[in-house]
Each structure stands twice: as C-alpha cells, then as structure tokens.
C-alpha cells in the first residue's frame, strides 16, 4: 500500500486532469464524510481548498453556491438574508456548530448519506450541480444522484438554483433521538400559496428504502385547494418504506413519518394565515 497522495489544484483544468487521469483519487471537501470510512483505502485526495469555491452569490435570478461552502457559511448567510429559505431551515439544526464549519455543500451532495439534511431542499429547489471531469457542465441534482455515471470521475464545483423556487413556505423535519443526532429520515417541504390557495407544493422524504421519495400523492391532493380548507389529518400519504436503523425500527419510522408529514404540512399551512 503506497502513501496517500494529496493534490492541491489551483485551477479547474488541473482538477479535471487529475480526476480523469488518476485511479483511486477522490475529491476532498471538508473531510467529514471521508473520515467516516477508512481514509487509507484511497490512493489520492484531491483537495478543493485552493479553487475559491467557498462563496454564495446571487445573479440572474440564480443563487449560486460554491462546492466548498460549509453548512456554517450557508446558515450564516441566510440567517441575515432570508431565514425563511428552505435551505436555511434544512441546515440550521443539522450537525453541530463545529461540524457545520467543516461539512461542505459539495461534499455532502457527493456523499449523500441517508441522514442527509440538505438533499430534500435541493430536490425541492430543482438545484443543479456543475461538474468537471469525465462529464462537464450543469446537471440536474435528481439526475446526479440517480446516475452513477455522473458521479464517477467527476468533481462538483458549484451548485445553483432559481431564486423563484424558494419563495414559498417551507419546513424541515428531522427524525432524531436527541436534538444533536443524525436523523433517521428527514421531510422537507415547500408550499407556494397564491390567493390563499396552494399554487404549488413540493415534498421530499430522505432516508427511505429508495434513499428518497417525492410525495406526489400528497402534493396532488393539496395543490389547488384553499389552504384553510385542507384537513391535513385526512390526507392520504404516499406509501414509504424504511429500513430499520439504530435510531428507530422500520415500523416506527413509517408511523412517525406519516404523522410528522401531516404535522409539518399543517404547520406550514397555518403560517399562511
């Protein structure tokens, strides 16, 4: 076993060259995901720290976030700018303060563990990731997570989403034991209201047997309805299955999910009034 080699590229071209030409080299963002496994199994680490990828900008109607932006950066940015943002709501309770300062947005998309707090909101926002490597350019986040071909030998450099996607009422639920815990699953939802009616709704659960699921049945049932007339308890919730986890059994997760999705939805609809 050879020694681990570090690469510190200063340009995107170098990143592309290293990731496409070397075997066993993986990108390094904050390192928290990599350190959950055995670091010695990699031949090389491609550090993204010298590329200026730690930023959040808004232009042309898009919010763009550099891959090296940490959860802590995101929370601090939106706390000032827009604490109603679904991204803020999803990340404010995720991980601890010191971990938040190390977990990067790009790293957590590439890693996508079942306890991810960020993915639901990115799905809702129809975010896109910008890749370099064997595939280049903007890709839809849903394509990225379901197509292993996009994952292999690529590096996420940035993500973006249309600001218009983040104008509704949002909520994020974490199925946890204590307040400082990784969730068994999360529910993220965003509801757009026009004239007191649900104009659009997007609800995702992350941490299911299929990794994540869009709750289309619930969305369909509420879209077009007057917010005040929706009886959340009477909703037919999509069938979602969970694996048993150290936090909770599969049966309990299912029961919890069905209750909490209704509760969160009610909380959002009530905030409309």
């Amino acid at each position: 076993m050879g020694e681990l080699i570090w690469f510190f590229p200063k340009t995107v071209e170098e990143v592309k060259d290293i990731i496409t030409s070397r075997e066993g080299v993986v990108p390094h963002g904050g390192g928290t995901g990599l350190l959950r496994g055995d670091i010695k199994r990699y031949r090389g680490l491609l550090d993204l720290g010298k590329l200026g990828l730690s930023y959040i900008t808004e232009h042309n109607g898009f919010v763009e976030i550099g891959a090296m932006t940490t959860y802590g950066d995101v929370v601090r940015y939106f706390k000032k700018k827009d604490s109603k943002s679904v991204l803020y709501r999803s990340l404010v309770d995720s991980a601890t303060t010191p971990l938040k300062n190390r977990i990067t947005v790009g790293g957590s998309i590439a890693y996508f563990p079942p306890w991810s707090d960020i993915m639901g909101s990115l799905f809702i926002l129809s975010a896109e990731v910008f890749l370099t490597g064997e595939r280049e350019g903007w890709f839809k986040i849903l394509d990225y997570v379901s197509n292993r071909g996009l994952y292999r030998k690529t590096v996420i450099l940035k993500i973006r989403y249309n600001k218009d996607k983040d104008t509704g009422y949002s909520a994020h639920y974490r199925a946890v034991r204590t307040r400082v815990d990784h969730p068994a699953f999360t529910i993220t939802l965003l509801v757009d209201i026009k004239d007191k009616r649900v104009d659009d709704a997007s609800i995702y659960v992350v941490g299911t047997k299929d990794k994540f699921k869009k709750l289309t049945a619930v969305e369909k049932e509420i879209i077009g309805k007057k917010a005040s007339e929706i009886d959340t308890e009477a909703l037919n919730v999509d069938n979602v299955e969970f694996y048993g986890k150290p936090q909770f059994t599969s049966e309990y997760q299912k029961a919890l999910f069905e209750i909490e999705v209704k509760r969160k939805l009610r909380e959002v609809l009530e905030s409309v009034k």
Binding site: W6, G31, L35, I39, L45, D47, N101, R102
Partner: peptide, 10 residues
C-alpha cells in the same frame, strides 16, 4: 472545528 474531523494536509 473538530480537529479530529480535519485532515491536517488540508
């Protein structure tokens, strides 16, 4: 930061 979660090289 948790220094145990930081690779020194980075």
């Amino acid at each position: 930061v948790n220094s145990c979660q930081v690779l020194a090289a980075s």
